[in-house]
Amino acid sequence: MAAGGDHGSPDSYRSPLASRYASPEMCFVFSDRYKFRTWRQLWLWLAEAEQTLGLPITDEQIQEMKSNLENIDFKMAAEEEKRLRHDVMAHVHTFGHCCPKAAGIIHLGATSCYVGDNTDLIILRNALDLLLPKLARVISRLADFAKERASLPTLGFTHFQPAQLTTVGKRCCLWIQDLCMDLQNLKRVRDDLRFRGVKGTTGTQASFLQLFEGDDHKVEQLDKMVTEKAGFKRAFIITGQTYTRKVDIEVLSVLASLGASVHKICTDIRLLANLKEMEEPFEKQQIGSSAMPYKRNPMRSERCCSLARHLMTLVMDPLQTASVQWFERTLDDSANRRICLAEAFLTADTILNTLQNISEGLVVYPKVIERRIRQELPFMATENIIMAMVKAGGSRQDCHEKIRVLSQQAASVVKQEGGDNDLIERIQVDAYFSPIHSQLDHLLDPSSFTGRASQQVQRFLEEEVYPLLKPYESVMKVKAELCL
């Protein structure tokens, strides 16, 4: 049975990233139509530049190519590739079939990587351009969430054990800070992308030097003109047959890092959902379990974690691919890159769409948070109580021993009897502590235990987050809708 299948058929496997999760716009960027249309555009740009620099290419040939950029006979191309065992030459023939007058000058002087690699770089750039505003929107939604809850005390956790208090907004800023680093890295790697350009079979530009009869300047002009037509500021000066596969490492490393950030955020949300302090959106008709109707599973956060793990592992592909590119190139890269580049971007696209949807509907339960604080705060307040007693004339050592005994009794009630923490009640009825009984409410005010959390939130948002989001103001209103 021949390899390949009808990918629109229910009898043929289709990647869930495309069929179930990723956005239509990201799927289109990695589609065959987008790819092969870009090949034709690159052939047109090459012909236009070659004509401008004096090669015998007519206006009629150029116009014929322009008129057929979208006229792609995919069936013919597939048949040609089956016959020739070469995808680029299959599309040269297919393009030439609908451009008979231009057929002889299509791909003039070029090698397969002229269309293959340059198209990949265009796709990487455009895919990054799709991700950047999506990530900015996630940051914006979380920034709104953090600002609104900047002063809401909550129990902090280290080692997932109760620690000092923080605020809900401050905790959210930990998430935002990681995503801001990801946004900066995505922008950097996007701006650092260079075009492969017009380089020939081993990167020496020998074929173009021959076409222009040894004119170095025209060869350099050709490279520059096509690079500018493709919208790049610069091209690699040095290439082998391909652009260095280190570029793929750079791009997928940034995406993998984004995956790590999203995994951490969504894990926190899942843990908070278990504590009943916070939940992701839950639709009115949504079913959490087929057997347990009360369940409210954090399905979206779980999906993000599941896909983020996949995204983090994909960076190993370009690392290994770059390491086995012998001399000017081997074909070890080809099949692998067809999979890992598309999957990385479709996965990143999915987790950003999902995280935006989550961040637009996060639900906080202040009463649950308050109750958990009441359970733990008495123990945390013991040092403040000791200091207040010393100020009232008591002995630190005597007070410490009193607190120690009462704390152990209260802990026994919590752990052995399943009761509430009654340390404060014990202190309130103990005559030894009568000098500070009137101060206990103040000493137990949760806001006095959150330090500068709310001020940190305000400063972080104003100095770091809002300036970073400013270039994306025009796209901030787009909502994230999930079908599944």
Rank of each mutant, 00 (worst) to 15 (best):
A78V: 12
E473W: 13
T111F: 00
F212D: 04
I436S: 05
F345L: 13
K295C: 01
I436R: 04
S447Y: 15
I385L: 15
G104E: 06
C483F: 10
Q439S: 09
S207N: 03
F208G: 06
L132K: 12
P56Q: 09
V363D: 06
E302H: 01
I427C: 08
L271V: 08
A344R: 04
L211C: 11
F460G: 03
I287Y: 02
D268Y: 03
D6S: 11
P318I: 02
D445H: 13
V198L: 14
Y294N: 04
M278V: 13
E383S: 02
L130N: 10
S438I: 14
S438E: 07
A163C: 02
P467Q: 09
T201G: 08
R372L: 02
G259L: 02
N118M: 00
W175Y: 07
N274M: 12
L406V: 10
M76T: 11
L440Y: 03
C304H: 04
Q416S: 11
R85F: 09
I106V: 13
L355E: 01
D317S: 10
L193M: 15
A388E: 07
K134F: 07
H437N: 08
K391D: 05
C173E: 02
N336R: 01
D441P: 11
S301H: 06
F160R: 04
K264C: 06
A431E: 15
Q416A: 11
E250M: 09
T354K: 04
D422A: 06
S395L: 07
H217V: 13
A150V: 08
F145H: 06
F30M: 14
G156D: 00
G418D: 02
P446K: 04
R303H: 01
A392Y: 08
E80P: 03
L209W: 12
A273C: 15
L186C: 14
T119M: 05
T94M: 14
G418L: 04
N71K: 12
A150W: 06
E80I: 15
R338W: 01
A344T: 06
R125E: 01
Q416I: 11
G214W: 12
F327H: 08
A410E: 04
F95G: 00
T119D: 05
V247Q: 14
M89A: 08
D87N: 02
L307W: 06
F379R: 04
C399Q: 04
V414M: 11
E64W: 08
L121W: 00
G231H: 10
T201P: 08
V92H: 00
C172R: 03
Q456W: 01
T166I: 08
M181G: 09
D191F: 07
Q397C: 06
L135T: 14
E463Q: 12
L44W: 06
P281V: 10
W45M: 09
I265S: 12
